[in-house]
Design a protein around this nucleic acid. Structure first.
Length: 352
DNA sequence: AACGCGGGGAG
DNA sequence: CTCCCAGCGTT
């Protein structure tokens, strides 16, 4: 559709009456806190609103300002992120606020280039902070916006193609130029999340149905064209639930790898045999006795992996230092633990 | 351009 | 089961 101003108008009007109340949204007439917008937008990367709601309040309550987050220990930050996934986001956010404190007096920089250069702040997040917190006409294109655009403008090239993405960013840039850029961007995302949904778009309730090319052509169910997806790889893993002699504390190692980096995990390795489990124990810096067979098997599914985990039990000695530590049940809440490790502790009967 | 990175909710 | 979510950084 050529008349973007009509689309703008309808979206803003709809958003004014249909926006969900979300804790990171500023009240009408109040300026949004750029730091809180930043935190929420990082949490929202590839993560649904409903999931973020379970973490956001606790996080900003504990770290209410950029300075307070910058001053926190990494373990403390990871503990607050524990279970939310994509843990690198937390470490990048932490690095980002440190940079803000060091170079910008603790204030999120309003200037686009400075904002974009912060760790973890990509094209999307920079635009979200710019438009929502600073009221600048900066575009946003996320999964919701792509779906809405693909339908409204009947874009039939697959998502994920460079040309498709660039086309959509240009559309977003054109559309956001005007009043209330933050609301316009949020209106697009909100529409995609609540009305123009993937499986069954509620066209009869959609404010832009009259402007929708896909709807006109009866193609709304066939758009957008998804990008091809690679099937997840199946991986067998061994995890060792090694406790101290009296079974009161469990040995955890802090991951440095990309997977679960920065989190405290059960010692793990790829494979399914007792031999591998022995190697895992030794590799962790532990000496002890191990069950000959797994005490439990469980699955853990990630987007890109299907892990089948064999859990061994051990009693082991070692020295808590660096990336190895013995944690009591009461310590676990203060540590960043992956859901996989949480699951392993449960299957192994270590509730403390 | 492709890939790795969590976890969970919806259908 | 499958899909994909208010993406980013690396290669």
């Amino acid at each position: 559709m050529r008349d973007l101003s009509a689309l703008r108008r309808v979206l803003l009007a709809w958003y004014t009456t249909h926006a969900r109340e979300l804790p990171w949204r500023a009240r009408v007439g109040e300026p949004a806190d750029p730091y809180k917008v930043w935190v929420s937008e990082v949490m929202l990367q590839q993560t649904r609103v409903g999931t973020v709601l379970r973490y956001y309040d606790r996080f900003v309550d504990r770290f209410p300002t950029a300075a307070s987050l910058a001053a926190a220990e990494e373990d403390e930050v990871m503990a607050s992120w524990s279970g939310l996934g994509y843990y690198r986001r937390a470490r990048l956010l932490h690095a980002g606020v440190k940079e803000v404190v060091a170079h910008y007096g603790g204030h999120v920089p309003e200037e686009r280039a400075a904002r974009s250069s912060l760790p973890g702040v990509g094209r999307y997040t920079a635009g979200a902070i710019g438009s929502i917190a600073f009221g600048r006409p900066e575009p946003i294109v996320d999964g919701n916006v792509m779906r809405v655009f693909a339908r409204v403008f009947r874009i039939e090239t697959p998502l994920g193609h460079r040309d498709t993405a660039e086309h959509m960013w240009r559309l977003a840039e054109t559309l956001v130029a005007g009043e209330r850029p933050g609301d316009l961007n949020q209106a697009l995302m909100e529409l995609g999340a609540t009305v123009c949904t993937k499986a069954s778009p509620a066209c009869e309730a959609c404010p832009v149905a009259a402007h929708c090319a896909a709807r006109r052509a009866g193609q709304q169910a066939n758009l957008p064209v998804a990008k091809a997806r690679r099937p997840p790889r199946r991986v067998t893993m061994v995890a060792v639930l090694a406790t101290s002699q009296r079974g009161r504390r469990v040995w955890l190692t802090r991951g440095q790898a990309a997977l679960f980096g920065g989190l405290w995990n059960l010692p793990m390795g790829e494979g399914d045999s007792a031999d591998v489990a022995r190697g895992v124990l030794r590799e962790a810096g532990l000496a002890g006795r191990l069950t000959t067979d797994p005490v439990a098997r469980f699955k853990h599914v990630l987007t890109h992996r299907r892990l089948e985990v064999s859990l061994f039990r051990a009693t082991a000695r070692g020295t808590s230092q660096g990336d190895l530590r013995a944690a009591g049940a009461a310590d676990l809440d203060a540590l960043g633990i992956s859901s996989l490790t949480r699951k392993g502790l449960r299957h192994g009967g270590f509730a403390g």
